[in-house]
Amino acid sequence: MAENKTQPTNASVEDFLNQVESPKKREDAFRIKQIMEEVTGEKAVMWGPSIVGFGQYHYKYESGREGDFLIVGFSPRKTSLSLYLLGCMETSFDELFAKLGKHKTGASCLYINKLSDVDEQVLRELIKKSYEYMKSKYPTK
């Protein structure tokens, strides 16, 4: 059985974020890190070379494949800030997304160009609800 490609590492989150080329995106990335730490109570950990994650859960599919993944996280990509809010994509938070501001969504991602495009309180609520949903769906032993 193949291991998940994205694994937690011992790499420095600060070093990674300090390498973000755009000063504005770097500032936004540090702010998102702070928000996610405050909302989840979890310490930031690098997952693979480019994702900052908070918390982790264990999954097991009917196929027998299982592994661990971050509960919430983000990555400051070149085109946008990608926020991994798996719980938000599995349940309906349409009302919150409607109030968020300028964003796009994908499979399990929320994409924003810059933090000033969205309502930070609504973003905090989405992170909180996603985190709580994943913690209840995948309780740790």
Rank of each mutant, 00 (worst) to 15 (best):
E3K: 12
Y61A: 12
F54S: 08
E38F: 09
L17C: 12
V122W: 10
L17K: 14
K135V: 11
A44G: 13
L83A: 06
L70E: 11
G55V: 10
S63C: 09
V39K: 07
S130C: 06
N4T: 13
Q7F: 13
K135Y: 00
S92F: 01
C109P: 02
G101V: 01
M1A: 14
V20K: 08
L81R: 02
G55K: 07
R65I: 12
E95L: 04
S130M: 05
S80Y: 12
K25C: 01
N4C: 07
C88P: 00
I112A: 06
S80I: 02
A44I: 07
K129W: 02
S22E: 13
T9R: 09
P23L: 00
H58C: 02
S22I: 02
C109L: 05
D28P: 04
S130W: 00
S75K: 07
L96Y: 13
I127Y: 06
E3D: 11
E42R: 12
Y131C: 01
T79E: 15
Q56A: 11
K5S: 13
R26H: 05
P76S: 11
Y133P: 00
F69E: 10
T79C: 01
E125D: 12
Y138M: 03
S130K: 03
S63V: 05
T91S: 11
R77L: 06
G101A: 02
S12R: 12
E120C: 04
M89S: 10
D68T: 15
R124I: 09
E27D: 14
T91D: 10
L126G: 06
T91Y: 05
Y111V: 01
F30G: 02
A2M: 09
L17D: 11
G101N: 03
S75L: 09
L123M: 10
Q19S: 15
T140D: 07
I32P: 05
E132H: 06
L110P: 03
G73Y: 08
